[in-house]
Amino acid sequence: MVTIFFFIFAVTALVSAVLMITYKNPVYSALFLILTFFSLAGMYFLLEAQFIAIVQIIVYAGAIMVLFLFVMMLLNLRQETRLPIGRPFQVALGSIFALILLIQLFFIVKVGLTVSKFGAFPPEKINKIGSVQVIGGELFTNYLFPFEAASILLLVGIIGAIILGRKKLPNEM
């Protein structure tokens, strides 16, 4: 059962990722990217990472992609969709390099990893306590400093976005 769902999610994620980078219209690309994010959230459910799956849907498929679509509606991109994807030379060279990278990654996966010592949280234990409680406990004890640093990072992001959006450009003075 899990295997069937895994293949459904994997095929959906990969096919919509391919469609995302091949569609000319950025709005369709964004919608296919949302589909990829939902499939990844499904895979997180299969991996019993419920908290991450929910956050994936809320933050990625919700907030981030809404921001993308909002910017697309804001910009007038009509004439851009008529341009070709890239120069043929560029597409050929990019495909070759991406293929080389993929083969390298396959080799890394094929070599695999030897596990000498397992961590303190086997899946059964996480399921018994609850994924959210385990992650929350770790975040507020061992990872307290990175957690606070992340909040400062978000503040910097907010301020940066506002300043970049407010700045008057020379041709608008």
Binding site: A10, A13, L14, A17, V18, M20, I21, P26, S29, A30, L33, T36, M43, F68, V71, M72, L77, E80, L83, I85, G86, Q90, V91, L93, G94, S95, F97, A98, L99, L101, L102, L105, F106, I108, V109
Partner: peptide
């Protein structure tokens, strides 16, 4: 699956010329 998705992301950055799609 993750390796293929990563390679597709690299491919998108290399072949697309639209800044929004590079970002995606």
């Amino acid at each position: 699956v993750a390796a293929i998705l990563f390679a597709l992301g690299v491919l998108g950055v290399l072949i697309r010329r639209n800044a929004l799609i590079i970002f995606m």
